[in-house]
Nucleic acid binder design. Structure first.
Lengths: 207, 207
DNA sequence: GTCTATATACAGATAGAC
DNA sequence: GTCTATCTGTATATAGAC
């Protein structure tokens, strides 16, 4: 009985994805510096040399991990259908946005990008463009259309979009990313989100 | 001529503060993991053993640094004098708050607390209580008084305080903490801040 | 208290067999 | 491509002289 699989190509890609998965777990869980290539290899069930064969060095592996994770976390743009009324969009956006950014994986990803951004600014740039920048632009564009319709009075849609999104991020996100013992409770969070929607509507209402 | 100083006690405390200053620079600049005790010693102009004599181990030294830095960055509570009109307080708060949180040292401190919070949750707790938590409470209290005066209509002052502060933090802070190449320009920031004040006043106006 | 010298461990990365 | 064994540097922490 031979030692190699029936399809060597599938075997190759399988090992590569095993390594990527292992590295994702460790980098996102413990950060860049605290993760060793030995751990990555053991966790993936391969030898260290195999890791180096596929990804060259630690930085390249790290970049590959961040890149793949950024692609996974994207909010659908269907949400910003211009035909939808403002209130519905605000409520949906608030719900989807908070669900996304407060998830365990998004928090880990954000934390790692902050820590790693100092030395590897490419990482932070990837995260910024795939995440915050993209969403802000989409939402601002939607608000422009609503402004044109006369539904709202917004002199600067880009600013308004930011105000809404960063307001929502707020305390719940900060507590999680600081890893505090007591996160914001779901009931309190829901009340806060509703408040934000109401606040936004009144602040930018057309009289 | 003897080698020791006239006052050995002053000499001791001087070395301790030298070490603390050196460690602050390195921890805030490069993070916990990327800072070695050797670097701290060299940067302070003392031997490594002296560092250990004063602070025991790396974690203790780190905690001491964060604790001292948190104490330095505190916003005066004179700002929330109940006699002051809302508009003045909002403008002053917005200016002082953004100045503080966008400063180099505050960004570094924030970054380090996020990175270190995973393993040493005491660090993040220190930061949270001395910074965000304290300011939110002060501002919420002021808003309660204004609500009682009938100047504004705020059903939940705690939420309103958060909305204003986290909205201000916004993109400028995120870009800095991610260490992106292109930070928000001062002119654009000022415009955004003014927008936030106007938005808040309209959103919570008493008709 | 402060120094120099050292013990011990583990990191990133590579050599060479199969 | 994949593995085991190893090189080389550097980290935390300590021992012992002064």
């Amino acid at each position: 009985m031979s030692n190699h699989e029936a399809n060597p190509i599938e075997n190759k890609t399988s090992k590569q994805s095993l390594i990527l998965e292992s590295a994702s777990e460790l980098f996102l869980g413990n950060g860049f510096e605290a993760t060793s290539m030995d751990q990555v290899a053991i966790n993936a069930g391969v030898s260290k040399q195999t890791v180096y064969s596929h990804f060259g060095n630690k930085e390249s592996l790290f970049t590959a991990v961040i890149e793949s994770k950024c692609k996974q976390h994207e909010i659908t743009q269907d949400l910003f259908d211009p035909a939808r009324p403002l209130h519905d969009v605000l409520v949906d956006l608030a719900r989807h946005f908070t669900d996304l950014i407060l998830s365990d994986e998004a928090i880990s990803l954000h934390r790692v990008c902050i820590a790693g951004g100092e030395k590897y600014s490419q990482i932070a740039q990837l995260f910024w463009q795939a995440g915050p920048s993209w969403l802000q632009a989409q939402f601002a564009h939607y608000l422009e259309l609503k402004q044109a319709d006369g539904e709202v009075v917004i002199c600067n849609p880009k600013n308004a979009a930011q105000q809404f999104l960063y307001m929502l991020k707020g305390e719940a996100h900060l507590r999680l990313i600081l890893n505090l013992d007591d996160p914001v409770q779901p009931a309190q969070l829901n009340e806060y989100i509703d408040d934000c929607v109401t606040f936004f509507e009144k602040g930018y209402a057309n009289q």
